[in-house]
Design a protein around this nucleic acid. Structure first.
Length: 804
RNA sequence: GGGCCCGUGGCUCAGCCUGGUCAGAGCGCCCGCCUGAUAAGCGGGAGGUCCGGGGUUCGAAGCCCCGCGGGCCCA
């Protein structure tokens, strides 16, 4: 008995005892004991004589100190661990149970094991062998489907000796297969190393029958085809009746068809064949093949190989397979194992492993938890394209995805933005009967921003292509997402809107149209695999009339036009956007609305790229910042130096006041020298920059904001001219709002009447032409508002408009 | 018990391979702006012990080791 268990066991049994000797368990190895049921089971007597290690203590590492005594009974016929250790000691695999769980011999022959238990206990008690009987709770295997307890029983099975080709599998896999993500390969290799031979037989009815025929003496023959089966057949058994077959193949076939039916390589058809090999009659082994074997041969079975060799030679091995992470040691493996056995090589060239879809909280979706979201529901509520894009965009494919409706909303928003860009462009293009095939791009006056977005979209081709090729679909979809939202909508479209409003055959406008068209030409092809429907819809309307190709899905995958890529320009634009953002922020601080122009914006920077950007993209900056001038420069500012009381106080205590006063007067000197010894009222003080705080003071008319490459200063000096322009825009904006409320057509003309303050009137008069042009007004009068009248308290005005 | 993966603001995630660019985005929240893409759009702000602990390094969210929590597979 194990020392650690002595007390517990004695307690349980209710016996007093003491430890007389302690020694290692291994000293017991080989000690012979008498089997307690040796009389009831004659086979045990035989074992005792025939097997050296039968009924002896053996050693095993699977015995624990958690339950029992430290000694366990080993039954190699009823449990995997027992079987393995039994093999090590050369023990017989004894399993006197039939398929029903009933004893096949011995005292309890014919009785179901569980029913025999109490009888056996009673029997042992009578014989005086029983110390204690009781119940112990422990884990026990159950049927995964019907949940009934299982009884382990050693049986004869057919194996594929995969251990013989393991090294080959790993080697072939190493050399020929790319795994995405690459670390799955490690997982796979570990799995292969740990796996044993493959049990391919199953005692079922449905399935692929094992093509093995066996003679009474055990000799086997594996039949390779229906034709071979017929050739070897000497008889068939139909309804228990043996029908001997004629000699010739054709006649055999006729008899078989007549008595058994047409060719069918399933049970019970194949079971009927009795073949003759080496002069012995053989019958089929009744087992069917493990379904994992079916899956293992999928790569060629699906090509109808070996019956059809043509497809196989053309398509095999497969380029790519994809499955969930539970299949690493299952389908990915069954295919390689079967293929290496059959062809000495692996059946695919790339594997992609994906994770699962979990619910929002990260729990597995399951019926019992009631957290299942059906794909159909998602498709119906949000659409196929958003769903598809979302799945690839939300997390890396190999990671688990926490499904979130909000995430889906976000993707929808992006697609909506794309749709808006398309609608806007298409509206203006069709108004102008835009036809890209009639234009010569080399003659169009492209602006910097046009070249920029073309550069960006070509860079995007590279990003998306790389993402797809390396299975980093999240990278690809995120690159598309950012391009659509940031580059195309938020920036490019914003920049070209005014150009699109120009009437007539303006080359500047055509350049913008052409650019947008070109961007869509590339972008739609990039998006086609991710959002096939929306890509196709836009393609049909915007591109197909000019490309003539029936569908976006029939176009070639785009190649990046290296000549169009201008990294320098992209970097400069990056800065321009940052400058505009900082400028807007500065305006917000100064409370100057974007409608009011500012006199000047100064950029302070050390970076060459920023300087170049300000120079080359100046028009763009002025436009977006609504500034009369944007320039790189240096802003003079005043330094305010104050004593740092937090330092000065504790250090100089009683003299702090004196020191502070000195700093207030001579701070500049200290700041410039860095440190200084000063004598005040006979005392010397050592002062450093630590003792001061430095603030920069800008001139009152400037407001500053930092950005990554420097600082932006907005000159907020408001001249009368600037004010007049701002006010004009205020009114234009409101008249436009009214036009919209009246649902006027873009081309409708109006008459405007304004009642407002004298101040406003004078200011407005300075920009009357501008107001009329922008609002399509034939006249602006300062008189009683008529027609559609709205009062606008924010600008102290009452405006009336009438359509003419 | 073993192998592999994941753990970053309230939420969902980038970044990690190839250490250094104040740690990024979206959603939500707060404050603004713009408006002939309009039942849209844009900007700004607040908000983070980068799971914990050691180590390597001039420097670690990132590399190494040990834990903790979750997922998958195997035993």
């Amino acid at each position: 008995m194990a020392k650690a268990l002595v007390e517990r066991v004695l307690n349980e049994v209710g016996v007093k005892g003491e430890i007389v000797e302690t020694f290692k368990g291994e000293e017991l190895e080989g000690v012979r004991y008498v089997h307690i049921l040796v009389e009831e089971y004659p086979a045990q007597k035989e074992f005792r004589e025939k097997y050296e290690w039968a009924h002896r203590v053996i050693l095993g590492e699977h015995v624990t100190l958690e339950d029992g005594t430290g000694l366990v009974h080993t039954a190699p016929g009823h449990g995997e661990e027992d079987f393995e250790i039994g093999q090590r000691y050369g023990l017989p695999v004894y399993s006197p149970l039939d398929d029903q769980g009933k004893y096949t011999e011995g005292k309890w022959k014919g009785i179901y094991v569980k029913e025999a238990d109490p009888e056996i206990i009673e029997h042992l008690r009578e014989k005086g062998y029983l110390v204690k009987a009781g119940e112990i709770e422990h884990k026990y295997p159950h049927c995964w489907r019907c949940k009934t307890p299982l009884i382990f029983r050693a049986t004869d099975q057919w194996f594929l000796k995969v251990s013989k080709v393991k090294d080959k599998i790993i080697k072939e896999n190493d050399e020929k297969v790319t795994w995405y993500p690459d670390w799955v390969k490690v997982r796979y290799d570990n799995g292969v190393m740990n796996s044993g031979d493959w049990v391919i037989s199953r005692q079922r009815y449905w399935g692929i029958p094992l093509p093995i025929w066996q003679a009474e003496d055990g000799e086997i023959y594996v039949v390779g085809s229906f034709e071979e089966l017929v050739k070897l057949a000497v008889a068939i058994e139909v309804n228990g009746e043996r029908i001997d077959l004629p000699e010739s193949y054709e006649e055999k076939l006729r008899v078989i068809e007549e008595r058994l039916g047409p060719e069918d390589l399933h049970r019970p058809y194949v079971d009927a064949f009795i073949i003759k090999v080496n002069g012995k009659e053989m019958k089929r082994v009744k087992d069917v093949v493990d379904v994992w074997f079916d899956s293992g041969i999928a790569s060629w079975a699906s090509l109808d190989y070996p019956r059809n060799k043509e497809l196989f030679e053309k398509l095999w091995p497969a380029d790519f397979i994809v499955e969930g992470e539970d299949q690493v040691t299952k389908w990915f493996y069954s295919q390689q194992a079967a293929s290496v056995i059959a062809f000495d090589t692996v059946p695919y060239r790339a594997v992609a492993m994906h994770g699962y879809v979990l619910d929002e909280k990260g729990d597995k979706m399951s019926k019992s938890l009631g957290n299942i979201i059906r794909p159909e529901e998602v498709v119906q509520k949000e659409g196929r394209d958003p769903f598809r894009f979302y799945m690839l965009w939300a997390t890396n494919p190999w990671e688990n995805l926490r499904f979130s409706w909000k995430g889906l909303e976000q993707v929808k928003r992006m697609l909506n933005i794309l749709w808006n860009v398309y609608v806007l462009s298409a509206t203006y293009m069709s108004l102008d009967n835009f036809d890209p095939t009639k234009l010569k791009p080399e003659e169009l006056p492209f602006r910097k921003e046009d070249r920029w977005i073309l550069s960006r979209v070509n860079s995007l081709v590279g990003e998306v292509t790389e993402g797809i090729e390396t299975f980093r679909l999240t990278k690809a979809t995120r690159a598309i997402y950012n391009f659509v939202v940031e580059d195309l909508s938020r920036w490019y479209i914003r920049l070209i809107r005014k150009r699109m409003w120009v009437e007539g055959d303006d080359p500047d406008k055509l350049a913008a149209y052409y650019t947008v068209w070109k961007v869509f030409d590339v972008l739609l092809r990039l998006m086609a695999p991710f959002t096939p429907y929306i890509a196709e819809e836009i393609y049909q309307n915007l591109l197909r009339p000019f490309t003539g190709v029936e569908s976006v899905h029939m176009l070639d995958w785009p190649k990046a036009d290296e000549k169009a890529i201008d990294g320098e320009l992209e970097r400069e634009m990056e800065y321009v956007r940052k400058i505009v953002e900082a400028g807007s922020s500065a305006r917000q601080k100064a409370r100057i609305k974007l409608r009011y122009p500012v006199r000047r914006i100064i950029i302070e920077t050390e970076e060459e790229t920023v300087k170049k950007a300000v120079e080359r993209l100046n028009r763009l900056l002025k436009d977006q910042l609504n500034a009369k001038e944007v320039a790189v420069g240096k802003v003079e500012r005043e330094l305010i130096i104050k004593p740092n009381f937090a330092k000065v106080g504790p250090e100089f205590k009683g003299d702090a006041k004196l020191v502070s006063q000195w700093i207030s007067e001579h701070g500049r000197e200290l700041y410039e020298k860095g440190e200084v010894d000063v004598e005040i009222e006979g005392k010397t003080f050592h002062l450093t920059r630590e003792h001061i705080t430095v603030e920069e003071k800008l001139p009152d008319f400037l407001v500053a904001e930092e950005f990554e490459g420097g600082r932006v200063f907005v000159d907020k000096t408001l001249t009368r001219e600037l004010l007049a322009e701002g006010v004009a825009r205020e009114f234009v904006r409101r008249i436009q709002e009214m036009r919209k409320r009246l649902d006027l057509d873009v081309n409708d003309r109006i008459v405007v009447a304004i009642e407002t303050t004298d101040e406003n009137r004078e200011l407005l008069q300075e920009n009357l032409d501008y107001i009329m042009r922008e609002t399509r007004a034939v006249e602006v009068r300062f008189e009683e508002a008529r027609g559609y009248v709205v009062e606008w308290p924010e600008v102290q005005a009452k405006i009336g408009i009438e359509k003419v």
